[in-house]
Design a protein around this nucleic acid. Structure first.
Lengths: 221, 221
DNA sequence: TTCCTTCCGTTGTAATAACAACCGAAAATC
DNA sequence: GATTTTCGGTTGTTATTACAACGGAAGGAA
């Protein structure tokens, strides 16, 4: 566990825990480690979840079965990243499938053990709960932003909405986005070639300038 | 405050508080009431927020200014409903504008006062924090679901995705949706008349049946 | 009743995007 | 250096949707 500990100790869930012994804290939280083989299902749809999962090593895929039977990938979580937290917090049945896409070690933390009511490490528990809230809230803001882009009627508007947000968050007209074309198309729920066409048109109109994933958005937008 | 208290006491944030005196709890939480006039701005974009807002009476509108300068309405919150919680939890600058669309009374609860560290009513504070997490997590799941629908390439798929989810959550092929056509179109980010056309086509193809907001989705979907 | 409003389906047109296929440049691998 | 893979732009066709406008049905209000 030693080496893995370092990896998760930097994760958002465990931030700002002053002078706490990681090993002892995890014992107090009744954390359990478990290994999953490549392809193994970690959580099934419909299941109720009463603990948080944190990836120690490997990779998990969170996906959802479509009404058409297609499997849509919602997230890929690597070391230090958490999954299932929303379902643990609401105690709602899982709507997603979680699988190990490599050999994966997961650290499970019972949700109830985070309650500051019980045990020692009270300070730490309080901090973790606060961190968890911050993570949920942050995800909320992110999801709301994406919905705002996706709600635009035309791809052109989606693109401008996204680029404007990026420019604003970067604080300037020139900025680099963290996505390549295919990822950007997926994020905006569009076809890559259609995205390319729209970007080209915006460039010809003098509204944007770009090279690879570096963009400049001109003032009128 | 007396009458307003009853209204918010049923709100999700204050659920499961056994044998707690609402008045005293609110004092302990350093809650403050403030009145806003019709049209008055409650929270400005860019502002940092360190408290939760709860509508006692009236109505607040949460909106966001578009890159085009359009104002998009994100939420309308009435009595008992909370706003700003995601920004208070992350301490990120507001990206939204909150206004009173009627004469409105807001109860403000400092975020820090929820910490179980301080003061009395520890049990209650812990429960409120847990409720808050549940609310954030629930919103997360809801937003994720909406993104899933919005991510479909065609309106037809968006509609089927939405109806399938509704059918699944209702647990049967026949169900009633909580939206009228215009609201459904807005939710799916589409034109109302285009939605009508798609619904009509699905009906002609024998895939769905509907009358007003009562739908039946046939088995193959 | 009559009027008015809300809700929803229809039509027609123009704009738009999806999809498939192809191509060249750059990057990575051998 | 040669080969393969990845990435992104282009083209052409077809399906889909936005948009504007209209009309009819249902439900209230006068």
């Amino acid at each position: 566990m030693e080496e893995n500990l370092k990896k998760i100790w930097d994760s958002p869930l465990f931030q700002n825990l002053q002078e706490t012994d990681p090993e002892k804290l995890l014992v107090s939280l009744k954390a359990q480690k478990r290994l999953y083989q490549t392809g193994e299902t970690i959580l099934h749809p419909g299941e109720l979840l009463d603990r948080l999962g944190i990836v120690l090593t490997g990779l998990v895929q969170v996906s959802k079965e479509d009404f058409q039977g297609n499997r849509a990938l919602l997230a890929q979580n690597g070391p230090g990243q958490m999954f299932g937290e929303a379902f643990a917090c609401t105690r709602a049945p899982l709507t997603v499938l979680v699988q190990a896409s490599q050999e994966t070690a997961v650290l499970w933390i019972p949700y109830d053990s985070l309650s500051p009511r019980e045990g020692d490490f009270q300070q730490a528990r309080v901090q973790i709960v606060q961190n968890l809230m911050g993570i949920l809230a942050g995800k909320n803001i992110f999801l709301t932003g994406r919905i705002e882009h996706l709600s635009k009627r035309t791809l052109r508007e989606k693109v401008l909405s996204y680029l404007s947000e990026q420019a604003a968050s970067f604080g300037g007209a020139a900025f680099t986005i963290p996505l390549n074309r295919q990822e950007m198309a997926d994020y905006l729920a569009a076809d890559r070639s259609a995205l390319s066409a729209v970007l080209g048109k915006l460039r010809r109109e003098g509204i944007i300038q770009f090279h690879k994933n570096q963009f400049t958005l001109f003032s009128k937008y």
